[in-house]
Design a protein around this nucleic acid. Structure first.
Length: 417
DNA sequence: TCTGGGGTCCTAGGACCC
DNA sequence: TCTGGGGTCCTAGGACCC
């Protein structure tokens, strides 16, 4: 059997752990630059605050309803997540960390599922302060369904729901709206409802061949999983990433190419650092540049350049240089730019280094990068920068409601009187 | 003033090869 | 009138997830 453990309103709950005075208040967490709402407590949801609500439009709403607003604090959430995951590993060695706040687990057939589900919930709550829900079922897709039911009916289920019979499976699928099925997004929902496929159960009644030809193998696999036939398996715990991205919106718009180059250099350097952490090299760079979606003359501008390198690399120097060169080509005068990004792909392990006959990197790059990474790790906060990166710190992320890094920074540790 | 960011997988179609 | 066939690789675009 599979279990899906999901933290309730993860970011909002993390903030609550360290500021328990907000245990019953509506809470909203904002995206980077305090742009829009990305996590809400149940109280905020009940007030009708939608996901993705732009913060500037909801200022008075927050005030009127006394919503406690936080900027996103990823160091805190990341650390809380790893604490939760290490607790889950005590219950089953076969675990797939699916996202920052949820994990699939493979359970032993001898387990008492109901008892185990409640044990998991209780231990995570006791040790981290985070509430979770547990769904248990014969397949991954069904454990998602079970989890949703546990979440929706806390009183009846106590936060744990198990699909362990055909009757329960059918009932659960009939209850699940098609748009709430894992793997059915907005587009597929529209196409399916047009065919009068309204629930997960309706979806499982379609013929395999129709699903395969109308959609793709992905949807067919999903259908089988919902029927109770194990099709989706646990994935590797530490999959090697196939692409790495750093893309950001700017706090304001930029028109000067110098500002854009500065930011893009930072993004490129960040990609290179992530490559070195996972011991990968890349040979393809994609550089994106986009105008403000909300300015009349800039909104249509959205362009990218793909650069194929003659050799693979994870050198910040090379990647930054190429990214800046691309900006020279992408930049057009008179546009208000709002967003840029760098994606590196075509990743290979560094050990797989191929000898390039006609072009290879300056051999001095590697030891230099090693030295930079070591110093940055030691002194923190990316003290060492390469030329072109935003030395002047002309930009800064807007984070007006940031909480402390309670669990990862010595100066921020709570003091109990 | 002000609307997130980082991933994966699949398919169709073109280029190229023998 | 008529255009081989089969295979692989690559890329762009579309869909999804959290």
């Amino acid at each position: 059997m599979f279990a899906l453990v999901d933290c309730n309103n993860f970011y909002a709950s993390c903030e609550r752990v360290f500021q328990p005075q907000y245990r019953t208040s509506p809470i909203a967490i904002l995206s980077n630059n305090d742009g829009c709402v990305i996590s809400r407590s149940d109280e905020a949801k009940n007030l009708g605050l939608p996901m993705g609500a732009p913060a500037f439009k909801y200022k008075s709403f927050f005030k009127d309803h006394q919503v406690k607003v936080f900027s996103s604090n990823y160091p805190l959430y990341g650390d809380m997540s790893s604490r939760v995951m290490s607790i889950l590993k005590q219950f089953s060695p076969n675990i797939e960390i699916y996202s920052i706040d949820e994990a699939f687990m493979l359970l032993n057939s001898k387990d008492d599922y109901n008892n185990l589900g409640h044990q998991i919930r209780n231990r995570v709550l006791q040790w981290t302060g985070l509430p979770t829900c547990v769904g248990i079922a014969p397949t991954k897709a069904l454990s998602k369904v079970a989890n949703k039911i546990a979440r929706k009916f806390p009183k009846e289920t106590g936060g744990v729901f198990i699909i362990d019979s055909e009757i329960k499976r059918i009932k659960a699928l009939k209850w699940t709206k098609i748009k709430d099925v894992w793997g059915i997004g907005r587009r597929l929902e529209k196409r399916l409802t047009q065919q009068n496929i309204l629930t997960a159960y309706d979806f499982t009644q379609l013929s395999d061949s129709w699903v395969k030809t109308q959609f793709s193998i992905t949807e067919l696999n999903l259908k089988k999983d919902l029927e109770g036939i194990v099709t989706l398996c646990l994935e590797d715990e530490h999959p090697v990433k196939k692409s790495i991205a750093t893309t950001r919106s700017f706090e304001n718009t930029y028109t000067d190419i110098k500002d854009i180059k500065e930011r893009v250099a930072t993004f490129a350097n960040s990609c290179a650092e992530k490559l070195r952490v996972q011991n990968s090299n890349c040979n393809i760079l994609i550089i994106l540049l986009q105008g403000s979606r909300f300015e009349k003359d800039s909104q249509t501008y959205k362009n990218s350049i793909t650069v194929v390198l003659p050799h693979t690399t994870n050198s910040s120097l090379t990647i930054v240089k190429q990214a800046i060169k691309a900006i020279d080509k992408l930049y057009k005068k008179g546009i208000k730019y709002k967003r840029a990004g760098v994606i590196v792909t075509g990743l290979v392990p560094t050990s797989n280094h191929q000898l390039d006959l006609f072009s290879s990197e300056n051999p001095k790059h590697q030891p230099l990068m090693k030295a930079i990474d070591k110093l940055n790790k030691k002194y923190g906060d990316d003290k060492l920068k390469i030329a072109n990166q935003d030395l002047q710190k002309t930009w800064k992320m807007k984070q007006e409601h940031l909480s402390h890094q309670y669990t990862t920074k010595f100066n921020d540790i709570l003091i109990i009187k």
